[in-house]
């Protein structure tokens, strides 16, 4: 009898304690993030979707070589040193395993692991992500590159013209020489 009532008293005591805890939680702010609108603050060393500083990149393709799953694809032309004509810098996130091995060998420290983490798509092809901020030539360097290209073209044209001229000037000689050679 006494035991029963002791147990009952203990039950009431513990129940009140527990209810105090839930009531405290009830008036606290919920910890839930309203996900698509609110984003969690990720750690500074978080390995998310890559982030490329294209202006620093020298298109050396060391990252692509370092990649254990070969998910980085780089194509660019080098019209002149320091100026790049970008065609492609793709990372296939269907393959990427976020190992960060591409970031260590980069000589100019231009590829980093970013903080973006939700990259789900409906098809596998959409998982290939274009990392370029601009295609072709950098807008800042466009003039310079155009200048070089124009110069080159002019040089080429001049060379071609010179060749043509030379051919017109001494057509017989060359023919003769050739004939002699034969």
């Amino acid at each position: 009898m006494v035991e029963t009532f002791k147990d009952f008293g203990f039950a009431v005591k513990t129940a009140i304690k527990g209810m105090g805890i839930t009531l405290k939680t009830f008036f606290e702010k919920p910890v839930t993030l309203q996900y698509p609108e609110e984003r969690p603050e990720v750690d500074s060393r978080y390995r998310g979707i890559h982030f490329l500083e294209q202006e620093k990149c020298i298109s050396c393709k060391v990252c692509a070589l370092a990649c254990p799953v070969d998910c980085i694809h780089i194509e660019s032309e080098l019209p002149e040193k320091g100026l790049y004509d970008w065609d492609r810098f793709d990372i296939d996130y269907g393959l990427c395993m976020f190992c960060e091995l591409c970031c260590f060998p980069c000589p100019t420290n231009c590829i980093h692991m970013g903080k973006e983490f939700d990259f789900s798509r409906f098809s596998r092809m959409d998982l290939v992500r274009n990392m370029l901020t601009w295609e072709g030539v950098s807008p800042a360097q466009k003039k310079e590159v155009d200048g070089i290209a124009a110069e080159k073209a002019a040089k080429k044209a001049a060379a071609a013209e010179a060749k043509k001229k030379a051919a017109q000037d001494e057509p017989k000689d060359t023919q003769d020489e050739k004939k002699d050679g034969e």
Binding site: T22, L23, T25, F26, E28, P30, V31, T32, Q34
Partner: peptide, 10 residues
């Protein structure tokens, strides 16, 4: 709603 708030949810 009450269940949510008591479990620190919304």
């Amino acid at each position: 709603r009450i269940a949510g708030r008591m479990q620190a949810r919304r």
